[in-house]
Write a protein that binds this DNA or RNA. Structure first.
Lengths: 211, 211
DNA sequence: TCGTATCTTTACCAAATGGTAAAAAAGCAA
DNA sequence: TTGCTTTTTTACCATTTGGTAAAGATACGA
């Protein structure tokens, strides 16, 4: 009787198991994020990981298992900046700081950004439950916080959810649409300009009017 | 000797040809925009169009031909709002009007938005030449126009390219990430709120400081 | 109505792809 | 070393998929 690691029934994960699962997930992130789910083949992942295809299927139950594991695994990392918003901090600085961290993530973790973009673009078929159970409560909380800040006169009035959409859209754009940005900006360092531009934009949007 | 329409050697396009090519392209837009290039099968397009697969290949040279045709065909439509920006109009109103039109397109033509998003996300493998030859010159022109407006004190200073990125990102977000917006906004009419939010945001960004 | 060109269907095929069975190899505790 | 478990490889397989050949049906001008 074989306890397959893929089925998560193994007593404890050996060192080899840890190493290989990590390798596979990293390779899969690379491939999934650039070709999408259907555009990715197990052979590509296998080559990228330097592990044979059947061996990959020894560690995971299948292509979909790898994809779902990646998605769920990276969700926390991806939402960390939103968790880091401090209710007791200065509202404007907290939001601007959030924008900056999101932009840094778009620069440093473009694969993760594209992985999520691909998934959402196709209707979030494998992530809908997670969006509902993890993202939504967090966004609801944040929206309440922003509304409180607005009510206290610390921020100009905005719809909190549309504000978040604008932040996500503008920052992730530099990762998700990199091919286009590249064509239009040439060799110029897009990130530096983007940072200044976005900080300015969200400051002007959110600075409360002197009353 | 057969003059296949797919090879564009037909003397003149018959009525049947027009109708069927249109049907196929519409079906293909539907499927490509939701499943991406690799995620789309000719069988899906065939079923959606109500035309048999071999018959589809009578009108187009292959899957890629359909995709490229769609992309090139829709590019003009997609860029129309940018062409409509009037150098002689009021700068702030021209930009805000552009934002509004882009948002309306995201609402009315979400399939086109997702088709392009899918393509760019994956590195624009089939659209890079078009980006370079069509989009880039147009963006360069618009950037010069915006810079002139800024120099004339009609707009607050911004990097024109990053401004365009922000406009594209925020407006297209409502089409491309609709699945997410849906989860987070529920039944609320996202478009109305988005319109007010974005108009406000770009006005505050671009209103020149009284000096 | 006839003949030709256009259009559509039927019946396939080769390659790619996700996945499996089972044997061989490698680790490892005793 | 021995014996058992874990890991990896080899050799496959069934399905899907983009695409083709060729016969059959249809439109259409003369």
């Amino acid at each position: 009787m074989q306890d397959t690691p893929g089925a998560q029934r193994a007593r404890k994960t050996s060192r080899i198991q840890m190493r290989n699962r990590k390798r596979i997930l990293d390779a899969a992130l690379e491939v999934f994020s650039t070709h999408g789910y259907r555009g990715t083949t197990l052979d590509q992942i296998a080559e990228q990981a330097g592990i044979s295809k059947p061996n990959i299927l020894y560690y995971f139950d299948g292509k979909e298992d790898i994809h779902v594991t990646l998605l769920n695994h990276l969700m926390d990392e991806w939402l960390a900046p939103l968790h880091a918003v401090d209710p007791d901090g200065d509202p404007l600085e907290e939001i601007v700081g959030y924008v900056r961290r999101k932009l840094e993530m778009a620069r440093d973790l473009p694969r993760e950004s594209r992985l999520f973009a691909n998934e959402i673009l196709q209707g979030a078929p494998r992530m809908a439950p997670h969006l509902e159970s993890v993202l939504k409560p967090l966004v609801d909380d944040t929206a309440r916080l922003i509304e409180a800040w607005i009510a206290a006169g610390k921020l100009a009035p905005v719809d909190p959810r549309h504000l978040l959409f604008s932040i996500w859209a503008t920052t992730q754009h530099y990762a998700d649409f990199e091919a286009q940005v590249q064509v239009l900006m040439g060799d110029a360092d897009a990130h530096k300009g983007a940072s200044a531009h976005l900080e300015r934009m969200f400051r002007r949007l959110l600075e409360p009017d002197p009353s």
